[in-house]
């Protein structure tokens, strides 16, 4: 595991910009990205930026309720998953997230993925968002095992 980026963000826009930067610098088809952090810290904002960086033009919405949203651009697919509502490993397996991962042309992003981290064999990226004082957010990006980039 190594840390590949560490930022401070003061606004939703800045968090989105960092997501865009991450996507352009580090992420490639076949990658798995886990996004962890407390409620309201800006996980979906970050994914909005990542999607923009990957060339997705559609509006990214929270998948908490739908559990998974797919966004396509040509033969590339961004799988945006959210484990917020899931309580058991069985439910994650039932969701079929492994099938999304098998798409070598796609990128899988999992919000609240830290709830079931034992289900993810490396390599993957781990983005951790946390609250600083007032409007400050910390964004830390880790790479577990032979990540591309």
């Amino acid at each position: 595991m190594k840390i590949i980026a560490r930022w401070q963000s003061k606004s939703e826009e800045e968090t989105q910009k960092r997501g865009e930067e991450l996507a352009k610098k580090f992420f490639h088809p076949g990658d798995l990205v886990i996004v962890a952090g407390e409620l309201g810290v800006g996980k979906t904002q970050l994914v909005k930026g990542i999607a923009r960086g990957l060339g997705i033009e559609e509006e990214i919405k929270s998948p908490s309720f739908s559990l998974v949203n797919e966004y396509k651009k040509g033969d590339f697919t961004l799988y945006h998953l959210d484990f917020y509502r899931l309580e058991k490993e069985e439910e994650v397996i039932d969701l079929g997230w492994e099938e999304y991962q098998e798409d070598e042309k796609g990128i899988v992003i999992v919000e609240w993925g830290d709830k079931f981290s034992s289900l993810f064999p490396p390599p993957f990226f781990w983005v951790h968002l946390s609250y600083g004082g007032e409007e400050i957010r910390y964004i830390e990006v880790f790479c577990y095992d032979s990540c591309s980039g």
Partner: peptide, 13 residues
């Protein structure tokens, strides 16, 4: 439409 969370989702969270 909503650009991020649905209204009911905000209630639940």
């Amino acid at each position: 439409s909503t650009r991020d969370d649905a209204a009911g989702e905000a209630y639940d969270k």
